[in-house]
Amino acid sequence: MTAARGLLRHGLTVYAVCYLSFLYVPLFLLPLFSFNDSIFIAFPLSGFTTKWYVQMFQDDAMHRALWNTVKVGVMASLVSTILGLFAARALTRYAMPGRSVVLGFATLPLFIPDIVLGISLLILMTSVGIPLSLVSVALGHVMLCLPFAIAVLLSRFEGFDRSYEEASLDLGENGWMTFWRVTFPLVLPGIVSSLLLTFIVSFDDFLIAFFLSGTEPTLPVYIWAQLRFPFQLPGVLALGAAILLGSCTVVVIAEWIRSWGVKGETHSHIAGI
């Protein structure tokens, strides 16, 4: 019996390592080939070079696309986090009939294919007469980011003992000062984490921007266009490697911040997405 259990244990560990490799090996290929001195993405590697990175940093169109993406990401993450903050507060603090309906509505974008979200937003923009621009992309991204903002902030507010606020009122503070001195600092990690994660969601989105960006491409739309030209691929690899590194860093920081002050429960909070 113990031998069987031991085998099960080791079998699972081996499996877990294989699974992680399956997740990560494809991602590591981008940085690997981005330093390869060849226009072809193939083995054997033909030598180390940084010319693709140099080429990328000199590409003005890429700079514009990056700047567009950052502008959209900042707008979308700010707005969705503020909206999510109010919503998460309401959903945890007040007894509301229809709470699950609101929650279901807010998480609906996760269950609708991006292409449907993209085309229906395109129909809306043309019907209402909003010109396709970075503003329309940002509007779409607010919707795309809201489920993530609400999930992150909800998990923060759920672990929030209401008597902290009551204690502050009891000690003579009014509602507004209680928010600034108690509530805000305690949910701040959730807010920062939500800002970072929603920024990443917006930064990575391709389809909605594809339909809504008009003549001002975001970075993923720009990359999509480059994919058609084989001689551009090494440049895309360099850009992709930089994006992967950037978003991994931001996500790890976001999750680390999110786990502040929720000792022992950190894993369930990550999993709460």
Partner: peptide
């Protein structure tokens, strides 16, 4: 309490109605 709750979720709801419910309705119409 209920009213305050609705007041606080209303901005998020308004955003979702404009960017999700309205586009999907238009999609059905189209």
């Amino acid at each position: 309490e209920t009213l305050r709750g609705y007041f606080l979720v209303s901005p998020a709801l308004a955003a979702l109605i404009f960017t999700l419910a309205a586009p999907l309705t238009l999609l059905v119409l189209y």
